[in-house]
Amino acid sequence: MARRNKIYEGKAKILYEGPEPGTLVQYFKDDATAFNAEKRDVIDGKGALNNRLSEYFMTGLNNVGVPTHFLKRLNMREQLVRACEIIPLEVIVRNYAAGSLSTRLGIEEGTQLPRPIVEYCYKDDKLGDPLVTEEHIAAFGWASQQDMDDILSLALRVNDFMSGVMFGVGIRLVDFKIEVGRVYDGDFQRLVVADEISPDSCRLWDLETGRKLDKDVFRRDLGNLTDAYAEVARRLGVMPKGTTPMSKPTLIN
């Protein structure tokens, strides 16, 4: 097997050079990190679950006309994606108060917000991904005003889709974050949802019990992270019902 050219390695994924120009292979690791990587562990099966769940969400978004970088799943841990120029922002959409919003503003966790709130963080691990405003984004040239209008539209469309999908399986979409990339076709540029959408990048609570089904399980030591992610996969039909995840979960091909 030929050695692949590694393009980038992050906390949860590795990007390799793709088989065709303009493509990348995105590999999902089992690594789990929190608090800007101050807490870390390796969780067996996490990467495979996130690969399949991100495939599910990205495919659904593509099908409803929300463009993403996702092309196809290659195997249990890898997917083929379009190469894109990542805008250095984390785009966060909040439907309920939780996490840093509750801490910053003193709002009780779980409080429903009057409308979805969109926030932006500058992607820089060394700085702890600080919260920034549109003024910062414009001043430092990270994105144009047209880009910001398109990013806001993308984020809210993702929120509408994800909220509906999760509500249908008894899960509340509390908040989530996405990354956005630029794809070029000649002189024409368009923005797409990039990176991943998975329980790593969302807060997901059971509608009836409030049980957390996302990375807060790891952050707050609330139980087995693979069990939580597998429950999301089962409800969405990505994982067969009745399957008990062991070190490596059983997923539908």
Results as ranks from 00 to 15, higher is better:
residue 199 P to D: 03
residue 134 E to Q: 09
residue 135 E to H: 04
residue 125 D to W: 09
residue 216 D to R: 12
residue 149 D to Y: 08
residue 223 G to L: 08
residue 123 K to I: 12
residue 247 S to L: 15
residue 139 A to Y: 03
residue 147 D to W: 08
residue 181 G to Y: 10
residue 112 Q to K: 15
residue 79 Q to M: 12
residue 27 Y to Q: 10
residue 74 L to C: 11
residue 21 P to W: 07
residue 146 Q to C: 14
residue 167 F to R: 15
residue 224 N to Q: 09
residue 28 F to D: 00
residue 70 F to S: 07
residue 177 K to Q: 05
residue 181 G to D: 05
residue 149 D to T: 12
residue 248 K to P: 07
residue 130 P to I: 02
residue 67 P to N: 02
residue 129 D to E: 03
residue 22 G to Y: 08
residue 244 T to N: 14
residue 203 R to T: 11
residue 126 K to G: 12
residue 32 A to F: 08
residue 158 V to M: 07
residue 49 L to C: 00
residue 81 V to S: 13
residue 118 V to N: 05
residue 60 G to R: 03
residue 177 K to S: 05
residue 108 E to N: 14
residue 40 R to L: 15
residue 70 F to Q: 01
residue 41 D to E: 15
residue 120 Y to P: 02
residue 184 Y to N: 14
residue 150 D to S: 12
residue 18 G to W: 01
residue 41 D to Y: 13
residue 9 E to L: 14
residue 85 E to W: 03
residue 225 L to S: 10
residue 250 T to S: 07
residue 213 L to I: 12
residue 118 V to K: 06
residue 249 P to A: 00
residue 92 I to E: 05
residue 253 N to A: 11
residue 249 P to M: 00
residue 15 L to C: 12
residue 11 K to E: 10
residue 135 E to F: 08
residue 84 C to P: 04
residue 7 I to Q: 04
residue 82 R to A: 14
residue 227 D to A: 15
residue 105 L to K: 13
residue 209 T to N: 09
residue 205 W to P: 07
residue 90 E to P: 10
residue 191 L to R: 06
residue 196 E to Q: 01
residue 32 A to S: 13
residue 128 G to M: 09
residue 197 I to T: 04
residue 173 L to N: 09
residue 102 S to A: 14
residue 233 A to T: 00
residue 66 V to W: 02
residue 22 G to K: 10
residue 250 T to F: 04
residue 15 L to H: 11
residue 219 R to F: 11
residue 219 R to H: 11
residue 168 G to N: 02
residue 183 V to K: 07
residue 108 E to R: 15
residue 94 R to I: 04
residue 245 P to Q: 06
residue 14 I to N: 09
residue 101 L to D: 10
residue 110 G to D: 05
residue 242 G to N: 06
residue 73 R to E: 01
residue 77 R to S: 03
residue 185 D to C: 07
residue 131 L to M: 15
residue 244 T to R: 13
residue 242 G to A: 07
residue 144 S to Q: 03
residue 12 A to F: 06
residue 201 S to T: 09
residue 243 T to R: 08
residue 162 M to V: 05
residue 122 Y to C: 09
residue 98 A to W: 08
residue 138 A to D: 09
residue 158 V to T: 08
residue 134 E to P: 06
residue 227 D to R: 12
